[in-house]
Amino acid sequence: MKKAIILSLACFLVFNFMVSCRKKVEEVPPPPPPQVKEQPKVEKVEAPPVVKEPVLTEEEIFMRKSLEEINNEAPLNMVHFDYDKYFIRDDAKPVLEANAQWLNKFKTVGILIEGHCDERGTEEYNMALGEKRAKSTLDYLVSLGISSNRIKTISYGKSQPIDPGHNEISWQKNRRAKFTIIAK
């Protein structure tokens, strides 16, 4: 009887051992695929705040951005000029009209118009010419109903080219009036 008990105990141990061994063997090979597939919780979590917050108006979104962020988005497009000239070209008019619309939408915005020239003029005369370009751009915006109190002008002459090249394509790019938003 004692023997039988020992035997059955031994058997049990052996069986247990085998089971545990098999378990181990089984467990090692399958690379545990962490199944994080189901995440419907996110939807549930998000739901309540959406109900709380009202939809932001364009103006409110605008006001939340920093000046730098707004300027990076460049909502106002620059306009270009003919060589040695500062009149507003026909191709610049729709651009300025779009800019005026935008300025009408965001009525608190103040802007700086920078006048720039290409390298084919002298430093001194180009400083004056750059200002003329900024001024004629300002005048055109004013003619579209934008208050001149919202606009500042400055000239950089030819000291800040955006294209360092020495050909007509570069020069054309550099003869420009550029807009920067300085107040909102």
Partner: peptide, 10 residues
Amino acid sequence: FCSTLEEGNS
């Protein structure tokens, strides 16, 4: 010196 402080003209 030059300035554009009046009328935006140098």
